[in-house]
Design a protein around this nucleic acid. Sequence first.
DNA 1: ATCAAAATCAGGAATGGTTACTATTTTATT
DNA 2: AATAAAATAGTAACCATTCCTGATTTTGAT
Lengths: 135, 135
Amino acid sequence: MSDTKQIMKHSKQRDAIFSFLMTRKDHPTAETIYTCLKEENPNLSLGTVYRNLTLLTDIGQIRRLRLSDGADHFDADTSPHDHFLCMRCNAVMDVHMNKPVRKTPYKIQDFSGEVEGSFTYYYGTCEHCLKEMCS
Amino acid sequence: MSDTKQIMKHSKQRDAIFSFLMTRKDHPTAETIYTCLKEENPNLSLGTVYRNLTLLTDIGQIRRLRLSDGADHFDADTSPHDHFLCMRCNAVMDVHMNKPVRKTPYKIQDFSGEVEGSFTYYYGTCEHCLKEMCS
DNA sequence: ATCAAAATCAGGAATGGTTACTATTTTATT
DNA sequence: AATAAAATAGTAACCATTCCTGATTTTGAT
């Protein structure tokens, strides 16, 4: 309707959040990101972290992972991949499966809707915990 | 350590919750279940609904679906199946895929942990919304 | 049927993750 | 430099869920 296009202005906080997220492969929560960045920038606000994580998710620059432990986790790797959740240590790990590449939207059997994509979570015991259980 | 085995006693509230959930295929939230059952039993407490849903989930009698809309959804169908989320009307639908049956735990390529299982969420536009978009 | 122990409950308070609000600061544009 | 829009810090509010307490229900044993 009306010209509601929103111009995204530069922000040091957002840069810091995204840069930090790119250095981590453990898919941290907003709280973790906030705690870590607060050390360098004591004025940082938790609300700013949440707002920017949502914003970055909306523009597709990061991915939000909704796991089973209450808080959302975030992933700077937006390439197609799935995740593995260790039931023992609660670690979240990347799983790059050789899924068939398909045009979207596509159809799936016995279902009449159009599929834009999917995300899969595997769960079990991670390599590290397997070793610990044997010792 | 100590003998902490917990005997599960019968409960009318739990029965009502499970029975109600079996009649629904739309994967309601705790709040929805509470509101519906409250009509017949005005004394019902929301905490009781939450406690029993968690309990039923723990013993594997129902499944908890953690979707992207804040509240958990519950499914009385524990047979292996996945779910489709309509991005337009937020409906949650069952998707029965012919996935390969595999013993668990199993291994997946390029990953050293042991997998107990997986759950997949598809997203897109449901049949009903597709029709609406054309009219 | 009576009784006691344990599980469950209702109701409400507390928790924890997240969002909303507001006055101020930063960013981008003229 | 002046201006407008976007972003921020700090805090309050929100909402789903869990926890707590004293009362009630269930169950098994007498």
